[in-house]
Every structure is written in C-alpha cells, then in structure tokens.
Amino acid sequence: MCLAIPGRIEEIIEKDGVRMGHVNFDGILKEVCLAYVPEIAVGDYTIVHVGFALSRIDEESAQKTLATFRQTGLLEEELGAEEPAAKETL
C-alpha cells in the first residue's frame, strides 16, 4: 500500500470538476488524479500512490525506480490490485 510508482503523464483531462490524467506506467495506462500536482504537465513524470499523483520526479530517477519495481515483481502487484468490478468503473 505504501509504494509509489513513477509514471509519465500522457494526457490531462477534467472529470466532474476534478483534474485527472492518463499516466503511463511502463506500458500500462491508468487514470490518475492530478489534483495534488497543479503544476504538472503532459510529458512530466510523477510518483503515483493509490491512483494519486503526489509529486513530480525527473525522468532518470523515474526510469531507475521502474526498473527496480519491474525486477522485483512489485509493479504488477501494485497495479494489478483490482477486480473486474472495479476495472469497469475506471
């Protein structure tokens, strides 16, 4: 629950008045809330915790962190934690 995964902002959208975005985690695209990072722009990297971008991070350290997560299988564990019922609501 405590891991924060780095991803790249692909698109910023507004949904019901909330700043949201599509974030690319190593090829997996997820909808993420961007309300806490008002300064962030498309192409930036951010660390995401349970569907929320919490801070900006530079690309190099994002790639390094992703590589470690990939190696340890943590990426799937964190991103895969949902059932079909929840998936359809995304």
Binding site: V50, A81, A86
Partner: peptide, 30 residues
C-alpha cells in the same frame, strides 16, 4: 478490492441502492 479510493466513490454512484464503505487506513501517504 479497489486501486484508488476514488473507485469506491464511483461504485457508490453506480449503486445508489447500496451503502458503499471504503476502508481507509494508512499513513500520511494514503
């Protein structure tokens, strides 16, 4: 199991006849 607490809010909107409760634990990050 949800990925984000916002998913729980969405489930509540989709299921108005149900009571949707999110189990909100964690440190300052969550």
């Amino acid at each position: 199991i949800v990925y984000s607490p916002l998913d729980a809010v969405k489930i509540a909107i989709k299921n108005p006849e149900k009571e949707v409760v999110f189990f909100g634990v964690g440190f300052e990050t969550t």
